[in-house]
Nucleic acid binder design. Structure first.
Lengths: 225, 225
DNA sequence: GGCATCCTCCATAAATCCATGGAATATTGT
DNA sequence: ACAATATTCCATGGATTTATGGAGGATGCC
């Protein structure tokens, strides 16, 4: 019934899907996608942020481009990469969710990286309510350019690197909700530890900007007014 | 700031996610997942359905199991594999959607496999309305065991292999809506071609059982009453 | 126990992927 | 045109992955 042409065509279709799967099959590529989910970047910036040799980063980006996960924009001598669409971020988030739920190695690696943390978390809806009530303030601890590319409305930006020096910019008595890139981003964990060590009340948003965008909640960009 | 331990832990976390990505990085594994989305099967049945050597199929299934995408159940001498959860099917569906949207090779391979098809399709909601109105009947052309494992309520089962012989079981005048495994399954395409060649009015459901389940619509199982 | 069936584990060769250094290309500024 | 910068392309060696045949384990039947 199924002729050899059909069998070949079937394999080609599944292989085409698989080549998108392959793009997700390297930790470094996932890290690049994660960075790109915060906003566009140049090859050089991506390589540095991901701790990769420039040529290696370029090669991974080509793989991602072939899979159609990223798009590029040239600006003078440099090339800016960005995610090709929201659905790519969605795919990344779902891959992680499924991996976390079904693969036992993930929670272990997660705790080892982020810190075991029994610490308090707050969800997006509760955050909205408590911000409206004036009970808490929101702190974005990502690098400044990521904040500029898009942040939760009303959030203050202090990159985690600068937090120790700039802690006095934070009101003494208010509780602080910290967020960063996403559910698996270490910056907010580090920031909460730093703040509580200095006697501030600080908790984490239970995920980050990636999930905020996927939930299609409002996003501000640029520097605060 | 980020010590070497942290860097290693970060890489381990991303690599853990990537090992789930790797499970999606082979056409044959995607084909196996696609089959499993229809219901559980033995290794032997999977190998035959996917056109694989038994040991090769077993190896791929081990890979999927490591990623936590499939689970097993022993019944006497044979082992039944099944998807580990709905979220796995969801991931598979999203991967395909993203691939189709962003990778130019996919639509080409799709048309080559399924046939270019300008033919009419009907969506799930329209199907529901037209069935309720008694305008159409629903035909499931998957193999009988997949039908038994779960089908659209009220659907008649005639596997596409038997369709030519059993065409007289279909009412002459009613329009027939054919479905099979999912959006990229060839069986319904073949069936519609066969039926229209013989003068019946037949169209396809625009996707199949995989998407029906993901939409959490009602599913019947077993043989019809 | 002995034997058949179904599946997994092991060893191996071919193919593919990854990281990296050096060459080539494209754009901008002088 | 020339130099400088950012990125891609190419070649290479080392590590992984894939398909496959054969050995080994588990279960059920006699």
């Amino acid at each position: 019934m199924a002729g050899s042409t059909t069998a070949g065509a079937k394999a080609r279709l599944y292989d085409a899907f698989a080549s998108s799967g392959k793009a997700l099959a390297s930790g470094k590529r996932l890290e690049l996608l994660d960075l790109l989910a915060q906003g566009e970047r140049t090859v050089d910036a991506l390589a540095k942020a991901a701790g990769l040799n420039l040529t290696t980063a370029s090669a991974h980006l080509q793989t991602l481009k072939q899979a159609g996960f990223v798009a590029t924009r040239r600006e003078g001598v440099r090339i800016h990469y960005r995610l090709a669409g929201d659905d790519v971020a969605q795919l990344l988030a779902l891959l992680r969710k499924v991996a976390e739920r079904h693969q036992t190695a993930v929670p272990v690696a997660r705790d080892a990286y982020l810190g075991e943390d029994g610490a308090a978390e707050v969800g997006r809806e509760e955050l909205r309510v408590r911000v409206a009530a004036g009970e808490v303030m929101v702190l974005d601890v990502r690098p400044a350019d990521e904040y500029r590319a898009g942040h939760i409305p009303g959030a203050l930006s202090i990159p985690v690197d600068e937090l120790a020096d700039r802690i006095n910019e934070l009101p003494e008595e208010m509780e602080i909700v910290v967020y960063c890139r996403g559910e698996y981003c270490v910056l907010a964990y580090d920031a909460v530890r730093l703040l509580t060590d200095r006697g501030r009340r600080a908790i984490r948003l239970d995920d980050g900007m990636l999930e905020w965008r996927l939930a299609e909640l409002p996003v501000d960009s640029g520097d605060p007014a």
